[in-house]
Design a protein around this nucleic acid. Structure first.
Lengths: 213, 213
DNA sequence: TTAATTTTGAACTCACGAGTACAACGAGCG
DNA sequence: CGCTCGTTGTACTCGTGAGTTCAAAATTAA
């Protein structure tokens, strides 16, 4: 077995990032002390300083890394959506449910909470990362919706607007219900928001009147 | 001129609450020190302790008071909406714009930010106040929408759902654009979200096909 | 195997802010 | 006017956490 030269160092680097994401998201930047991050990561505190410089440096790295990860997950979900589905409603519900879980459940929840809560403390970093994430997500989603329009499944004049509104309809209620990330997302709430949100979306944007509305 | 016995004390009490709302909202609970609140309020620090006990007590009072104020403003806006408007679209746009400004602009912005950011630190207080506010707002709005349905302007099977979705459509974009309260709300963004959101709402819930969609 | 690099545990310094104390002053009331 | 209560400016204590130090140990590289 061949172990590459920096494998172990990468392990610790990643372990610190993972631990920090968890602790920062739960407690916020101010209430997070690096003794605790070190303990969760299984390293010594000076090791964190060796890798990341200082607390703010660690935070910035966590935000960047976790947001890139979230981006990749979202892109996968949108790419996996068919542009010629047999059941459009079901396809959109699956897409929407997956998006909400990517953004608000599991690792996405921690990422979202950092972006949401610490915008005042790190305005440039958070704006750049969060707005970049959102723009990218909406672009990809708008692209997919435009394809659905091209194949006659939807009637859109502005795919960007449709993307924004679909996101709003399906994500607002779960977000509020979770206390903006302070509580775990309730899958039942997501399901309801998705079902109702897609229903309203189709009532507004489907070519023919939606069967239910 | 007759001055009531506790006028001065009420003045200071209110001055402390106002100052604290401003500072807590800008800096967050952890980064707010009571020396600064005292300076902004124009009182001595021990006076804050005399009135509110400790920092957490002050914060709780600020959350309660500002949320009640926000509640009253929202109730006024909804009550002022006609249930038999000549121009439904314009009436809904006015309602929606006022709601968003109540919730996300001026004093509403500070209130919202406290509720949004400090949910993890004070879970019971924030959940109670924020969920109570939201439930009340949605109830009032659902009531108004139900009345619009009763007069034939809308076609609803579930006014509660319609209220949730109207709120989502008109408030999501301004909220994200303001960095969840970290930046001032941009009126142009609100206008666009309101116009487009009401348009989609009417496309889904108006009795006859909306003229634009 | 040796040398170089990284990590460690433990202890430390220093700045900061919550909360307190207190004598003196100010405001309000009878 | 005297009394009571609230407020003040100033100084203080104490706990906490960011960041640093260092000799020894562990890991990695040659």
């Amino acid at each position: 077995m061949v172990v590459t030269g920096t494998t172990r160092r990468v392990d610790k680097h990643r372990a610190i990032l993972d631990a920090a994401l968890d602790v920062f998201a739960r407690q916020g930047y101010a209430d997070t002390n690096l003794d605790e991050v070190a303990e969760v990561a299984g390293v010594a505190k000076p090791t964190i300083y060796n890798h990341f410089g200082d607390k703010a440096g660690l935070f910035a790295a966590v935000v960047e890394t976790s947001s890139q990860d979230a981006n990749a997950r979202v892109a996968d979900v949108i790419a996996a959506t068919s542009t010629n589905p047999e059941d459009l409603r079901a396809e959109l519900e699956t897409l929407a449910r997956s998006l909400v879980h990517c953004l608000q459940g599991g690792a996405g929840s921690a990422t979202m909470r950092l972006q949401l809560v610490e915008g005042a403390r790190f305005p440039e970093l958070i704006s750049r990362v969060r707005d970049g994430n959102r723009d990218r997500t909406l672009d990809l989603l708008a692209g997919k919706l435009a394809q659905l329009a091209a194949t006659g499944h939807l009637r859109l004049r502005d795919p960007g607007r449709a993307a924004r509104q679909l996101m709003a309809l399906v994500s607002d209620e779960p977000l509020v219900n979770s206390g903006f990330g302070a509580r775990p997302v309730d899958p039942a709430v997501v399901d309801r928001a998705v079902t109702e949100g897609v229903d309203t979306f189709l009532a507004a944007f489907a070519p023919e009147p939606a069967p239910e509305s």
